[in-house]
Amino acid sequence: MTTLADFGDDEITQLLEAPGAVLKAVIVADGKPRSIGFLKATARAAKVFRAAQEDENDMVRAVALALRDRNPGDPDGEDDEPSGSDDYLWPDSEREATRAVELVAASITLLRGRADDEDVDAYGAWLVRIATQVAEATTTKEGGLFGKRVAVSENEQALIERLATAVSR
């Protein structure tokens, strides 16, 4: 069984940042989210993070609890204060997706070197589950004015697939 105590501070930070990066990438996958969509996505994310705090896998549970303790009320543990840029007004979807995929891949590589296969698989599955469930929280209209509503947009699905690939490497 692997615990967070088996990792250094920078490594723990990396493991804790990956879920938040995934969450942010999914929320902005289709550009700036509408208010209702944002609220639905964050509500679903909160459920996913709360469920992870009771996950049967010790590693997933430890990461989720560390995120909760790191910054209560902020499931991704990130400082959400604007840094003087307009990133929050006009998010760069591709940059956020790339950051999330890179963090997930690096975290999985880190775990593969030191954790049990069960822990690696559970952590990776949890990250993909965050993306999938948050993407499914809102419907997206694709195809313009007469387009249809879909549960997961093409951009969200592409991100989920990229994350799944990063997890399986």
Rank of each mutant, 00 (worst) to 15 (best):
T2R: 03
T3F: 02
T3V: 09
L4M: 02
L4I: 01
L4E: 09
F7Y: 15
G8K: 12
D9T: 12
I12V: 14
I12M: 06
P19I: 02
G20Q: 01
L23D: 08
K24F: 03
K24R: 13
K24H: 10
A25W: 01
V26N: 10
I27C: 09
V28L: 04
A29N: 06
A29W: 04
D30C: 10
K32L: 12
P33E: 03
R34C: 06
R34E: 14
I36L: 13
I36E: 14
G37W: 09
G37H: 13
F38K: 15
L39I: 15
A45L: 05
A46S: 12
V48P: 06
V48Y: 05
R50Q: 13
R50D: 15
A51L: 10
Q53T: 07
E54I: 00
E54K: 13
N57Y: 14
D58R: 10
M59T: 13
R68G: 03
D69Y: 04
D69E: 12
R70G: 03
P72H: 11
D74S: 13
D74A: 08
D74P: 00
P75G: 09
D76I: 03
E78T: 10
D80H: 14
P82L: 00
G84I: 01
D87M: 08
D87A: 14
Y88N: 05
P91I: 00
P91K: 00
D92T: 07
S93G: 11
E94T: 07
R95L: 08
E96Y: 11
E96N: 09
A97L: 01
T98I: 12
R99M: 04
R99S: 05
V101D: 11
E102F: 00
L103G: 07
V104Y: 04
A105L: 02
A105W: 05
S107F: 10
I108G: 01
L111W: 05
R112G: 08
G113S: 08
R114F: 02
R114W: 02
E118H: 13
E118G: 09
E118M: 00
D119H: 10
D121Q: 14
D121W: 10
G124C: 02
A125D: 15
V128N: 04
I130R: 09
A131Y: 02
A131Q: 07
Q133A: 03
V134E: 08
A135F: 06
A135I: 06
A137D: 08
A137C: 08
T139S: 11
G143L: 09
G143A: 07
G143D: 05
L145W: 10
F146N: 07
R149A: 09
A151V: 06
E154G: 13
E154W: 05
L159Y: 03
I160K: 04
E161Q: 14
R162T: 07
A164C: 01
A166G: 09
V167L: 08
